[in-house]
Amino acid sequence: MQQPIFSDELTWRDRLRYALLRLPLFALLWWILIEGKLAGWWYGIPVILLAVLVSLLLLPAPRQPRPLMGTVRFVGFFLWESLRGGIDVALRAINPRLPLNPDLIDYSLRLPEGNARIVLMNTISLLPGTLSANLRDDCLQVHTLDDNPQTMQSLEQVETVVAQLFGIDI
C-alpha cells in the first residue's frame, strides 16, 4: 500500500499554522546566505517555499511547544561543556604521557524515541570525554576517554538538559 505523502495525524489548519511559523525562519536563513543583498530574492522565494514544504514532510510538527527557558539553558550548557570538552581532549593529546583510560559503557536512556534522542546523542559526542557509539533499543553505548564514576552523572545531567529543551518530563 502506498504511504500518504502527509501523515494523517495533523489537520490542514495545523499544517498551515506550522508553515506560517516556519516561513520567516527559512526566509531569515536565506537572507543570511545571500548576505542581505536584494538581488537574491528572485529565486530565493521559490526556494524558501520549497524548503517549508520539505520541512513539513520531514518534520510534521513538534510534539510539545519548546520551552524558552529550556532552550536558553541548553545553549548555555552546550557552549560551556563543549568548550570544556575541547580543552580536555586537547590537553590529553599534547600530554607526553597520553592520559587515556578508555572504556565502553552502557547508558539506559530515559528519553523517548525521536528527535530528542538524536539531539542527545550529538550533544554527548561534543561533551568532555564521551562519544555516542551505538544505540540498541533503549541502551546507548558510550565510548569514554577516561573511565570514571562521574561519567554516568554527567550523562544523566546532559539527558535532563535535553529533556528540558524538548519540554519532556523524564
Binding site: S82, L83, G85, G86, I87, D88, V89, A90, R92, A93, L100, P102, S125, L126, P128, G129, L131, H143, L145
Partner: peptide, 12 residues
C-alpha cells in the same frame, strides 16, 4: 579515541 580528538578539539 581519535574521533574524540577530531570532533571536540576542532569544534572549539
Amino acid at each position: 579515541n581519535r574521533l574524540h580528538a577530531l570532533t571536540k578539539a576542532d569544534n572549539v
